[in-house]
Design a binder for these strands. Structure first.
Length: 869
RNA sequence: GCCCGAGUGGCGGAAUGGUAGACGCAGGGGAUUCAAAAUCCCCCGCCGCAAGGCGUGCGAGUUCGAGUCUCGCCUCGGGCACCA
């Protein structure tokens, strides 16, 4: 062989690893364990370049940790339930199960050639009955522990397709298939009591030191702990059995500015009022013709309806306020009712201006009272402001102090209670869909809702279902629902709701520690392997998935399925940026969007057309790769053309791992050229036929003598050890792009080196070791070409020799007034006074000073000199 | 709308508060070649002949010194509870 040929090299080394069992994880108490996990993929059909990025990063960590003496667990599985499988079945008539398993086979077939160091013996899919049966068992434990309950909740209902729609399926208020306006409908649904754990989930964030700060902040804000006042506005006349309206506010200090009460559309009182107020009923119906997402509610035009009811202000019974229904008030937060304070809340102000409600702006101001016009004045929480005739007697206080004073005042006066409130809502897990984990309960006419017996698990999904009619196939199945009641034996009906797919992904990491066990987990295994030492995945999962998984770990621990230490299951988290791509869109005859894959489109700058038809394509700015938007890039082309190592090297070198990247393949060829160059260097070294003479200790360099200073061997050894230090730091710090850059520099150093053949071979073997986490096949090949013993995958990571990392002299930049003007080359340990003298003698400094003495002279030894003139 | 990020040459990006632009892509020049491919060498932020000046989305501020810290904006991206 005379040139780099990944097509030959890569399968050969993959077979060697497989034969060696290099990546099979076994418990071993003599070694520190390390559990690396990438968020498992949804089997959408093909892997895309974002997957390659994710799994390559994880593989770098796994291989590096293995080389540094850890017993590594690095598993892979499939998040296999979900809507796309049903959509595919509806679109092309297949079965979701067939579609899903075929996709898994395809994707596994695409992933294996990447040479990932995965223990494939642990693979499972969440749609395997062996997995979801254990999940049903967990559900029953949670149910028994009182962590699951049923209540009514609102869903998006498509009246034509007779089906519940996901928020994603609601487009401009209409069903994505039927085009019919979506309705809100209330269904009885299952919920996990995650909100009972709000405080714990919040407090737990403090301990997650190896999580990105931004993720902890996002989770904390999501949980949304707040302190406020709960109290009642008495109705001037009782209405439908209520005497007053309970409100919750986080700004009780602005109570003097109250000018109306706002009720959520779904507030119980509103529901009651609707019955005999057709105008209100029409208004509410209008508001309900809207999706359920918070985004939609918050961005919709603010609208209100005066109920005609009046309430009394708690501080002054003579003061009456109108009660409005408003479409921006959330029933799920607080009491579903607020008081509006237009002067000190922007949204309330806009509402008040629209409906001509009073704006009371006279009791708090920055210094002098100023009338509020278009912008509400929100009293700052931590800055002192002036309070005028405030009922608490405050005159000057921060918002926070005013809130506290108000809380005490209301509590003492007895008309309000201070209350801690969380934004976090209970987790609704019911889905009216086929392709999910069946909820293992039975509805019995005698006993009510009865849990299945564990010995009946798994409750399997029936295979004989069809998707040619609207609605949930489980509901329509001729026999599947019919079961005897587990308690009394009378004929009963199975629950037909399946679980939210977030449930599936909330404990898979624990299942990987004993994927074939007859119980959800096995304590010995889960105790050995948990926690996940490094979790890696897209930042788009920063809130929901990670929060649900954290809740699940607590619940599992409570039920004895996880050890105490695993309540926080992810020790370290790395959120990689997304690989984005433009979305190519056309419209069908009805004006609905049609998306096109990048490979179906011919693009020229800002213009694009469908290659096959010539139809003009609208280019929508880049967004995260998503199957539904079809803006996915298949890595197969790069892998086919250049091999897996090039794909891996390129995706790692391209940009910092945490940052989003707009995908472009420009440069993939250059990555391949580089790997070829490394191969040629190794090949030349092999031809030179030199032995390094240190076969016994390929990595134990620190005991060796340092080559004489000034020799090419010395320079090469320095470059080598610089590279070891830099690449190690790059990998440890998730700066893979920098690690790659350092390896480029090291390659240049080796290529230019005049050192002996033996010294070069030695350097190249270390280069192979340093490259192994990124380009494992090429690294093995070079290792073997240069006489390395055994598999490189089993060798220890090289150690940098500190003697070769230090410099004797440093270049010290000289700044004049902060601008670099000159530099000094000085001994590393030269003392301050000598540096000052040299700096002042410098030509540029002399010119700048022009005979004067410097105002200030800053010397940071080893760093910089700054002369202030 | 709310929460969280990001913004540096033509491009991807580098830079413990201390020489902005490492490393690479693209581009330019040269060597080699009958020619090409491949490879190797050199140049490459902007303005300027030069001296020099200007430069990290915009505007302020802190500091001897700011890409980095603070405040206010702009633009783009992610999330917003039934996409996964």
């Amino acid at each position: 062989m005379s040139r780099y040929s990944p097509a030959d090299i890569e399968p050969r080394w993959q077979a060697a690893w497989e034969e060696d069992g290099s990546f099979t994880a076994r418990r071993d108490d003599t070694l520190p364990k390390y559990y690396v996990l990438e968020m498992f993929p949804y089997p959408s059909g093909r892997i895309h370049i974002g997957h390659v990025r994710n799994y390559t990063m994880g593989d770098v960590v796994a291989r590096y940790k293995s080389a540094t003496g850890h017993n590594v667990l690095h598993p892979m599985g499939w998040d296999a339930f979900g809507m796309p499988a049903e959509n595919a079945a509806m679109a092309s008539g297949g079965h979701p199960k067939d579609w899903t398993y075929a996709n898994i086979a395809d994707m596994r077939g695409q992933m294996k050639p990447l040479g990932l160091s995965i223990d494939w013996s642990r693979e499972f899919a969440t749609c395997d009955p062996e997995y979801y049966g254990q999940q049903q068992s967990l559900f029953l434990d949670f149910l028994g522990a009182g962590m699951v309950y049923r209540k009514n909740a609102v869903v998006n209902w498509d009246p034509v397709d007779m089906t519940v729609l996901a928020n994603e399926q609601v487009i401009d208020g209409c069903g994505w298939r039927s085009g019919a306006p979506v309705e809100r409908r209330e269904l009885t649904q299952w919920f996990f009591r995650i909100s009972e754990h709000a405080e714990e989930l919040l407090d737990g964030l403090d301990g997650l030191e190896k999580w990105p700060e931004k993720v902890r902040t996002m989770q904390a804000n999501w949980i949304g702990k707040s302190r406020g006042l709960q109290f009642s506005f008495d109705l001037t006349a009782p209405s439908h059995g209520s005497d007053g309206i309970e409100v919750y506010t986080t700004r009780p200090d602005t109570l003097l500015g109250a000018s109306f009460i706002g009720l959520a559309v779904d507030h119980p009182l509103v529901r009651a009022l609707e019955a005999d107020n057709s105008g209100l009923a029409a208004f509410c119906a209008e508001c309900r013709r809207m999706g359920t997402s918070e985004e939609e509610l918050e961005t919709a035009e603010k609208r209100g309806f005066d109920t005609g009811l009046r309430v009394r202000h708690p501080l002054d019974p003579a003061w009456e306020l109108p009660v409005w229904v408003a479409n921006f008030i959330l029933m799920d937060y607080g009491t579903g009712a607020v008081f509006g304070c237009p002067a000190h809340d922007q949204r309330d102000l806009e509402f008040a201006r629209k409906y001509d409600l009073p704006v009371i702006d006279t009791f708090v101001a920055l210094s002098e009272p100023a009338p509020v016009k278009d912008t509400a004045f929100v009293p700052p929480k931590t800055e002192k402001v002036r309070w005028i005739d405030h009922f608490t007697g405050l005159t000057e206080a921060t918002g926070e102090e005013a809130i506290e004073a108000t809380l005490s005042y209301a509590e003492e006066a007895g008309w309000g209670v201070s209350k801690t409130q969380f934004r976090l809502r209970d987790w609704g897990l019911s889905r009216q869909r086929y392709w999910g984990c069946p909820i293992p309960v039975v509805h019995c006419p005698n006993c009510g809702v009865v849990p299945e017996k564990k010995e009946n698990l798994p409750i399997r999904l029936p295979d004989d279902v069809s998707f040619d009619q609207p609605g949930n196939p489980l509901d329509r199945h001729p026999t599947w629902r019919d079961v005897p009641c587990p308690t009394c034996g009378t004929p009963a009906k199975r629950e037909t709701d399946t679980m939210d797919t977030f449930v599936d992904s909330s404990w898979y990491f624990a299942r990987f520690t004993a994927p074939q066990a007859e119980t959800p987990t096995v304590m010995d295994d889960v105790s050995y392997w948990m926690n996940v030492d490094q979790y890696i995945g897209g930042v788009e999962h920063a809130i929901l998935h990670l929060l649900y998984a954290r809740f699940f770990s607590r619940a599992m621990q409570h039920c004895g399925h996880l050890p105490e230490k695993a309540v926080e299951p992810f020790e370290a988290l790395f959120t990689q940026g997304m690989v984005t791509h433009a979305i190519y869109q056309t419209r069908d005859a009805e004006g609905r969007p049609v998306y096109h894959l990048p490979e179906e489109v011919t693009r020229d700058g800002d213009r694009a057309q469908v290659t096959a038809t010539g139809e003009a394509v609208e280019i929508i700015s880049s967004a995260k790769m998503s199957k539904s938007k079809r803006n996915v890039v298949d890595p197969a082309q790069i892998i086919d053309a250049f091999g897996a190592d090039t794909a891996r090297w390129f995706i790692l070198s391209d940009s910092p791992p945490e940052r989003d990247v707009e995908w472009t393949a420009a440069g993939a060829e250059a990555a391949h050229k580089h790997l070829s160059r490394v191969w040629r260097l190794a090949d030349a070294s092999r031809m030179a036929g030199s032995s390094t003479g240190d076969e016994a200790a390929p990595n134990g360099v620190s005991e060796e003598p340092v080559p004489p200073a000034g020799s090419p061997e010395h320079d090469l050894a320095r470059a080598t050890h610089r590279a070891i230090a830099d690449v190690t730091a790059g990998i440890e710090g998730f700066a893979f792009n920098s690690a790659v850059a350092k390896l480029y520099a090291f390659t240049n150093a080796v290529a230019k080196s005049k050192a002996s053949a033996a010294a070069q071979t030695k350097a190249l073997r270390i280069m192979a070791q340093l490259m192994a986490p990124m380009t494992p096949h090429l690294a093995e090949e070079i290792w073997s070409m240069l006489g390395g013993e055994g598999l490189l995958a089993n060798t220890a990571w090289p150690k940098a020799d500190p003697r070769l990392l230090v410099d004797d002299t440093v270049v010290l930049p000289i700044q004049i007034n902060g601008k670099r003007r000159s530099e000094l080359q000085v001994a590393k340990d030269m003392d301050r006074a000598d540096i000052e003298a040299l700096a002042l003698a410098d030509d540029a400094v002399q010119r700048a000073l022009d005979g004067a003495t410097p105002k200030k002279l800053i010397v940071v030894p080893g760093r910089i000199v700054n002369v202030v003139v």
